[in-house]
Structures are given as structure tokens and as C-alpha cells.
Design a protein around this nucleic acid. Sequence first.
DNA 1: ATACTTTCTTAACCCAAGTCAATGAATAGG
DNA 2: CCTATTCATTGACTTGGGTTAAGAAAGTAT
Lengths: 196, 196
Amino acid sequence: MDTENFLVDYFSQYITLSEEEVQLIKNEDIIRKYEKNDILLREGQIAKECFLVLKGCVKRYYLEDGEERIMEFYTEYDPINPASYVNKEPSEYYLSCLEPCIISTGTEERTQRFLQKFPRFIPIFVKIGDSLSAKKQMFLDDFKNLPPEDRYQKLLATRPDLVNRVPQYMIASYLGIQPESLSRIRKRIWSNRKEP
Amino acid sequence: MDTENFLVDYFSQYITLSEEEVQLIKNEDIIRKYEKNDILLREGQIAKECFLVLKGCVKRYYLEDGEERIMEFYTEYDPINPASYVNKEPSEYYLSCLEPCIISTGTEERTQRFLQKFPRFIPIFVKIGDSLSAKKQMFLDDFKNLPPEDRYQKLLATRPDLVNRVPQYMIASYLGIQPESLSRIRKRIWSNRKEP
DNA sequence: ATACTTTCTTAACCCAAGTCAATGAATAGG
DNA sequence: CCTATTCATTGACTTGGGTTAAGAAAGTAT
């Protein structure tokens, strides 16, 4: 199985790896496979691991009156850094697999050991963290300023894959609207495409 | 002038300070006064300082077609950690004073020097950062799940002071609605209070 | 005080999203 | 293969926010 190469590919996006580094990553890394609907983290649990999605799709959500409120979708090469993992506090969210997934899990000590050995990776880790927080901020900005239809259009433009692999009612929840509304929005967009 | 004591008060919330620490904070700290409408940070600038509001009110906003989109209000004892300060990248936002302000400004080297001398403050800094990020997340959750009226009700409940010191049209922008709508919401709330 | 600016409110109209209910389409399980 | 469930669409209706425009109220300056 060559699932180990996913992680090497991931880091290669940012940096050129030496042979030694490749070997260490292959040895150190723990890669697990999950079934659809497997739960990575439950509300109330304290996360002992962070994740990197190598293949598949994960949703982060919480329950309100038994309803799932979806906060985020993670797909290929998206890192997942649960607040619970960072703070050592009970998680406010669930993480569960929407598809069969291949996921690399990180622990604190392993990361620390890794960064100690290859300090040149530190700025990359920082950069990844920064860009995550910037993305969150942008999402909030859009949410405040764009009406539901524009939010959907933006999602279509920026993450077109999501719309094809995720059920619409989850997309609706993610966009903060009802499934019926999303259905009508799609219809509206479709008819405007034909005769402008 | 005893403005120096603001900062001592701030840390005392979290930890009991020794006399030496109090002295150091008083010596090290730079406290500045600002006029209403003074700008702490402009879009495009790289922030060289972070802030702690000791007195007054600061807004964070950006411009869209010349319109202010308000993202956050900072008041007494709110720390301001601009993304631009953390990442050394041009700021996406403005920071400006809504009132005459007394603000403590922090620089990287000063913070580092301070934490080196008093490492027991490190967990406090981390905790403050965590709680900031948690607050942001909660705000987004509410924004997605609550209609404008409920958002305003929640603001009334959690930050009642804001509504009294900040112009309504800014509150409206912060809540992602038009000033006219906020006006109607207030009217609606008012009349429901009278005859239930 | 007066004039001027800024801020807040009201009204009228439109339209998009929420809600409830029914029907179709797609999927999963046996 | 058929059935049962889940998911998506559509319709009728209500509601609440956006928009435009006007005017009232509050704050500033002269």
C-alpha cells in the first residue's frame, strides 16, 4: 500500500524534502482508514489527536435540538486542528466521515519530536495555522455581507467539488439556510443562466 | 497620572502580581491616549503593535464600496491582536477609536522580554488567545443560526453597554443588517415588552 | 439662537427565505 | 427485485429584511 506517500505529497507542496525526511515521515506517520459515518471526535470528548485528511470528506458539526448544524467540510489535504486538541478542553463539535476516508493523525509528542528534528518545518506549521484562521475570518465576512444566494454562488466558485460530493441539505446547513431555500436558489440560478 | 495601573489591574484578573512584577509592568508598558476618530491601523499597513484597550472603544472594520463593514468592537480590557501583527502581512482591516481612548500597546520584543523574565505569564497569554478564538467561533455559530432579531437580543444580553455607547447604524453593520431594519427590530421588541 | 450635519425613525413596496405539506427521485436494505 | 427510507423539489402562504425616500431628532458648529 502506498498511502504513506500522501503525507509526503502534502509537505512537498510547501518544501522540498530530503530522502531522510521522507523516510522519517513514512516511519513516523500514522495513517488510518475510516468507514463512512465513522466518528473522529464527539462532543464532550477531549481530542487527543489532530488530523490531516488525505482522502475523503469530513464534516464538523454540532447538535441543536437534535439537528446537525454543519460548521465545516474538510477534504483532501485539509488539516483539522480541533480547538479541543489545542486547549485540552471538551469538544463543542463532532467530527465524522461523510465518505470512506484516509486520514493522518497527529499527536502532540510526535509533532514536537518531528519539529525538533526538522526545525525548518516550523514556519510551515505556523503558516498553515495562520491561513486557517484567515480563512475562518473571510468566511465570517462573507456570511455577514452576502445574502444566501451569493453565499452559494461563492461556494460554487471556490469549492465546486463540495457541491457534487456532499448532500444538499448539508450544504444548506453549512450556508445557514433551509434545504428548500437552497433548492429554490439552485432553480433561480439555473433559469438565469439560460436567458440573460 | 495613574493610567499605569490599568495594566496591573488587567493582569490581576488572572494572577497575583509580585511587587517586582508590578514595577516592571509599570516601567515597561507604553500607554498612549488617543482622540476620537484616531486610527490605530489602516488597511494595507503592517501592524507593528498589538493593543489592549484600557479605556474607550475601538472598532475594527473594512471598506466595501466606501461603506464601513464593522467586524468587531473592543472596549475596556479587550485585547486586540491584529492578524497583520501576527503574520506580518498587510492588514485587511482598519482600527479606529470611537471614543477618546487609553490604550496599552505591545511590541514583539517587549512581550518576548517580558515572558522570558516571567514565564509563568505564558499560559495566561495562551489562554487569552484561546478564548479570543473561541469567542469568534461562537459569534459565527450565532450568526448562522439566529435571525437578525435574535442576534440583536443576544447582543443586548451579552454586551448591553455597547448599545448605549455606539451609534445604532454601526451596531446594525456589526449585526449584518441595515440601520432601518435594526430600527424596526427595536420597535418590535419594545412593543412586545408592553403587552404579552 | 440658527444653520448644518449626523443619526434615527417611519412608511410603502418588493422580494427572498421560512414554514408546512405534498409529491418525486434516489438509495439502501432485505 | 421490491420496499422503505432518505433526499430533493415544488407549491401556497407568511414573515421579515432590503430598498428608496422622506422627515424627525439629536448633536455640532458658527
